[in-house]
Each structure stands twice: as structure tokens, then as C-alpha cells.
Design a protein around this nucleic acid. Structure first.
Lengths: 320, 320
DNA sequence: TTGTAGGCGTTATCAG
DNA sequence: CTGATAACGCCTACAA
């Protein structure tokens, strides 16, 4: 040993300025030599602060959430927190299992996606007594913290864009019917009903997981049940891309014969042929702002607004 | 309280069969009521087993690693371990920071991607004295555990496929020059040199991060420096997809005028127009097998082979 | 600037 | 089947 007490070692790492230059160096040296790393478990136990925050997202296959998580990580890392990430596969049941699993890490706060939780999950969270911030959607419940944007408003905007392009027979196609997808469906309906152009057979909703391949399948199916459709609004870019490919194969002219729109603005969507009209969602920013809000709550600060709406942007490209 | 000692509560959760039916039920009830969750930090400290395993991958934007991580998670969850995942952005420096950060969780084992570590990182790992399994590449160092496949052999196979299709002026285009990309480059070179067709101006390697957009850019650049190229082997599917789109825009006939091949076989690659010839890599299986191997090492079992080669498959599609 | 005492929530070990 | 005791590695609070 270096002949110093454990508390001094602890201090040397946590408040270097409170330890003499000399000691600090010796401790650092010894630590490097033996590869010493402070044990978080012990630290958490003793200080009653785990410096962990748990983040639950529905999926990582969907690059949307990868970007959100990247934003979260950035903020928390800067503040010395460790992010623990869990994937719930769009299932409230899996989510509860994850909440339990991560609560065992005694996180100082938690970030959840959306508001679709079981009652029992909500109870667990309340009992844990840690701050929670919800991402992607805007809070419906009184008192809940959230950072996101209005899925409905975004879908309305897209539908109106299609209408403004002179389309009259606009379809809505969706898969992976999570709450955000359903909100987009409502936005579409609102706009299309307001325009007096709603026709139920132009809606195609399937529960399957989204994929590019499915987009091609759904395009075919929709055109069978509503052949005169002149525009399709897909609930996400993956489906839209699959549809674009299928149009290419079948020689369907986009946008002349059929306009195609997506949602999210994935990186690939400006590269497709034709490039894809879509909604750019602020997912990275959602991660950053949600993390900041959670951080403030953890530190006991009062946050100015419980609900932060980060908006969205319509990206009109060649496909419409 | 339920009037039982803490140790009994602990037992009720860990070895339910060693506690009487009655007590077990009362404990469960009380736990549910107050939302009690066992604290891993304390548990880890007392038992000297954290039941954590750390996993480091270069990126999650690349869906390849998302699938690997999914495989890992599955195996570890079944065995009660919690996976902690870190992203090092292809940087050995960031990797070391992550190793340090996760060592603080006292993981029972660690899974790393590739062999490109700093010496100091290796030292840290050795001092930690926990088992390590390397993923994606096959071990070069004596004594190292690894699960993957030969990147070189796969790239050779693809190059030979192109040759067998009668291509004579085959280019290799790569970005994100990590060790695996470079191994693919070597595989290409071996095969093309063996065929007596190597021409240095048909190689285009750039350090930039891979993306679909970059694929289009690199296609253009390559065709400028080697206009008579009749096939391009891209180091991954993202670049190849971008190239396919650019060909579509420019009216370059694929595969007639130019054959295009990728690497990885992403889900989208069979949907593109034309569908993409590529190498299907066993990334999910790599995750599963690497996790199993690590598990065995943690449990002190001896593993039959230190190096597991999971192979690859050539998917010949329309683009060649 | 440095150190001592006590305890965080859980489990290993040994008793009852 | 149930419990008492000590210990895990670190930090808070206080003292020297």
C-alpha cells in the first residue's frame, strides 16, 4: 500500500483539490499500477447516489431511438452519470420487467418512451420515488414530465402537404401499431376528414413489425383495395422506402402517378430515388432535452416547463 | 415489517424452495405492496458476484451490432445476468474510457469487439482478472478467446464470385477504415492479385464514417478515377446501397454495365432495385455464441475451443 | 490536509 | 426452516 487511509484514496478521486499534490500523485500512481477502479456498487451504497440513470426504448433496430439514446448519453456522460439502456420491444409487459431490473440498480432517475405503461409499472415507479421523464410524446397526464413533439400535428401537416399538392385520394398505411403510430393515424384522419376526403378503405393498418420489405407488401395490398389512390402517407420511412422500391419494380411513376410520403427523415431518405418527402423528427434533441430535464429534477431544481414540445419539420422532396 | 429477518427475505427471492410456503407468500406480498426491489449494488458487494457483464461495440447506427447485442442479451438474460452496453465509436481511446467505466460495475466478464485495443486497455483488463471474449474477428493472439468469422475469407469469396461472373476490372471501395474493413481489403487484394488483375487505382479507401449518402459520392469518385471499372465491391451494404441509388439516377445499368456488391446482408439489401449481392454475416449468432462462451468462462468451465469460426454466406442476387 | 467511526443493503457462514 | 453476525468497498460526518 501507499500508506494512506482508504478515505484519502476516495477523496483523491472525488475531490482531487482537497488532497495534497504529493499524495494525489502517489495515489494515482499506485492506482495505475494495480489497475484500481473505484467500485460503483460500494460507492452507490455508501453515498445513496448511484449515479446511474436508466433509459428504456422500444427498439434499437429503429435508428430513431439510437439517435435519441446518443443524445441522452452525451448529456449524462458530461455530468458523470452512467446510462443503463434497456429495450422493451414495444411491449408494456417487457417494459415492466425492465423497470424492475433497472430499479435494482437504484437509478437516480429514469427515462421512458411514451406513456403506454401498465398501472403496476407506474406504481413501481412511484414507489421508487425517483424522477421520471417521458420521451417522444407530449404528456397527457397531469404532473408527468415529457419531452417530444406532437405526433398528431406532424401527421396532420403531412396530410395537408399532400392535399396542397392537389392529391385527393390520399391513403394512410401503418404497421407496428404503437401509440405514436396511432397518434399519426389520428392526425391523418383529422386532416383528411376536415378536407371532406376520408374514405376508410384507404387506411391500411397492420400490427406487424415495420421493415422495408413490409413496405413493398403493404403498397401492393393497398393498391389492390384502393387502386385509384394518388398518394400514400406511410407511418415511417422504412415502409415508405419499401414502397418506393416496389414502385420502381412495377414501373409506377412517383410522384406523377402516386405520391409517397414517410415519417422520421432517416439518413437514407434523402438518397432514395426519388428522394422521400417526410417529417424530420427531433429525436436527437429529444434525447438531449429529456436528459437535461431529468438531470435538473435529480438535482432538485425546478424545471420551468413540465412539457417541452420540440416540434418537427416537413421535408418536401421529390416523392411528392 | 412482516416480522422476518432480512436474510430470510433474501432467501425468499434467491432460493424460494428453501423458505416455507407461508413465509414466502407473506414476503412476496409485502414486497409487492411497498414496491421492494433487491438492490444489486448491495448484492454484488456482499456476494462478490455482480451478475453484470459489459459489452462494448463500435456503433449502434450500424444495425449489424444491434443484432449482435440482441443475441448477447438473449443469452445473458436467460441466465440472470444484466448486460451493460457501451459504444466506443470505433475509437480505441473511447474504448479505454468505457472499459474503465464498466470495470467500476465489477462485471463478471466482458465482451469486446475486435482486437484493436490499446496496450493500457489490455493491462486494465488483465488486472481486472475477468474473462474476456472478443467478437467479430478471429483471434490472432495466443490465449485470446474469440467468436466471429474470417473477414478476409469472406472478402475473398466475394471477389472470386465477381471474377466467376466474368468481371475483370473489379474495384474495392471502403470507408470507416476499422480493422475489419481493412481485413476485407486484404481479402479482396489476395483474390484479385491471384487472378493477376490487381490495379491500384481501383481501390478507393476513405476514413469517413459509412453512410448511404457516402456510397453515392464514392461511386462517382471511383468512376472518375477508373471509368472502365465493371464491378465494385463495397466494404458494406450501406455504401453499396448508395451506389445503387446513384446508378439509378445516372442511368448506369446494374449489373450489365456495372456489377455492385456489398457486405453484411442488411435486411434492406434484398429489397433494393436491383437486389444486392452481398455476404451474409452471422452477427446475431456471434452474439449468442460469444455470450455462451463468456458464460462458460465465468462459471469456470473449460471451453472446448478458444476460437469459434461461425463462417459466412455469399448471397448472390440481381446486382451482380 | 488527513484520519476515525459507523453504516449503506445484501449475502456467506455458521447456529439454533 | 430461520436467524445472528460479520463483511463487501466506499462515503458521510466528525475529529485531529
Amino acid at each position: 500500500m501507499t500508506g494512506v487511509s482508504t478515505i484519502t484514496v476516495s477523496r483523491a478521486f472525488r475531490h482531487p483539490e482537497k488532497v495534497s499534490e504529493d499524495l494525489r500523485r502517489r495515489i494515482q500512481q499506485a492506482a495505475d499500477d494495480i489497475g484500481y477502479v473505484r467500485n460503483r456498487a460500494a460507492s452507490a451504497l455508501a453515498s445513496n447516489r448511484s449515479m446511474n440513470i436508466a433509459v428504456l426504448v422500444p427498439s434499437l433496430s429503429n435508428s430513431v431511438f439510437v439517435e435519441t439514446v446518443t443524445g441522452i448519453e452525451k448529456v449524462f456522460r458530461e455530468h458523470g452519470y452512467q446510462m443503463l439502456m434497456g429495450v422493451n420491444h414495444y411491449s408494456a409487459e417487457e417494459e415492466e420487467a425492465l423497470v424492475r431490473a433497472y430499479l435494482a440498480f437504484a437509478p437516480d432517475g429514469m427515462l421512458l418512451t411514451g406513456f403506454n405503461h401498465r398501472d403496476s409499472t407506474r406504481r413501481l415507479l412511484e414507489q421508487a420515488g425517483i424522477p421520471i421523464v417521458h420521451m417522444m410524446e407530449l404528456s397527457d397526464r397531469e404532473g408527468a414530465y415529457s419531452v417530444g413533439f406532437s405526433q398528431e400535428a406532424a401527421a396532420q401537416a403531412m396530410t395537408e402537404h399532400l392535399l396542397s399538392r392537389g392529391r385527393q385520394r390520399i391513403a394512410f398505411v401503418a404497421s407496428q401499431l404503437d401509440p405514436r403510430t396511432l397518434a399519426r393515424n389520428r392526425g391523418y384522419r383529422d386532416a383528411i376528414i376536415r378536407a371532406g376526403l376520408y374514405e376508410s378503405h384507404r387506411e391500411l393498418l397492420v400490427p406487424d413489425q415495420s421493415s422495408v420489405a413490409l413496405g413493398a407488401v403493404l403498397l401492393k395490398r393497398l393498391l389492390e383495395q384502393a387502386p385509384d389512390t394518388d398518394a400514400i402517407f406511410f407511418c415511417n420511412d422504412d415502409l415508405a422506402q419499401g414502397a418506393l422500391f416496389e414502385c420502381l419494380r412495377q414501373g409506377i411513376a412517383v410522384p406523377n402517378r402516386l405520391a409517397v410520403a414517410g415519417f422520421n427523415d432517416l439518413a437514407i431518405s434523402e438518397c432514395t430515388v426519388p428522394s422521400l418527402t417526410t417529417i424530420k423528427t427531433p429525436r436527437y434533441e429529444v434525447g438531449v432535452e429529456a436528459a437535461r430535464m431529468l438531470l435538473a429534477l435529480i438535482e432538485g431544481e425546478t424545471v420551468p416547463r413540465k412539457v417541452i414540445d420540440l416540434g418537427f419539420q416537413l421535408r418536401a422532396r421529390e416523392s411528392t
